[in-house]
Amino acid sequence: MDFDEFTPSRRGVIVGGAVTVAVTTVPAVEAQVPRKQTMAHIEKVAFEVNGKRRELALDTRTTLLDALREHLDLTGTKKGCDHGQCGACTVIVDGRRINSCLTLAVMHEGDSITTIEGLGTPEKLHPMQAAFIRHDGYQCGYCTPGQICSAVSVLDEIRRGIPSHVSASLTDQPQITNFEMRERMSGNICRCGAYSNIAEAMADVAGEKA
């Protein structure tokens, strides 16, 4: 094989690559990178999750996602990629949906967090959860909590007049159309491909309340 056309230095790879590449693939044999301080720092943080105050002492490297899943037993929020590409970890923080893998838990002092468990329970489903069941808006179920948290937020965002990439105008009230919903849901990947059914579940819920 001809390696001459592209001979990266390790430093070049590290500088240009994603963090994960540097962590898992680069032989650090010549130790060109100064080793980082990797001792854990523990910090206290307190926030509200699904209406309940929670206090935690966490390694500051802990994401909000892992705080929920590993420290609070709230495993409904899923880890699909751990770096903001799939949306499975979507939760609602202070009324706004975010990727909980892209934010550290200690950044959320005093925040109010809603997870899928906070939207509804099997005995008392949120209308969006019920609509997902009715329209079969899921298959394997792994992206589903994120889809539902996003779906609830998307309808709220449209109602609050927040425009999207496909809104005809930045100032007019956006409408709850199939196109608007699909655009705004595109950060939530479903590899089972339930999109068509999710759109119908959302339209159903939007209609009920309209």
Binding site: L74, T75, G76, T77, T115, I116, E117, L119, G120, T121, P122, L125, Q129, A130, F132, I133, Y138, G141, T144, P145, I148
Partner: peptide, 9 residues
């Protein structure tokens, strides 16, 4: 299994 999957349980 819908009620469990849609509520994260």
């Amino acid at each position: 299994d819908g009620p469990l999957k849609t509520t994260g349980l």
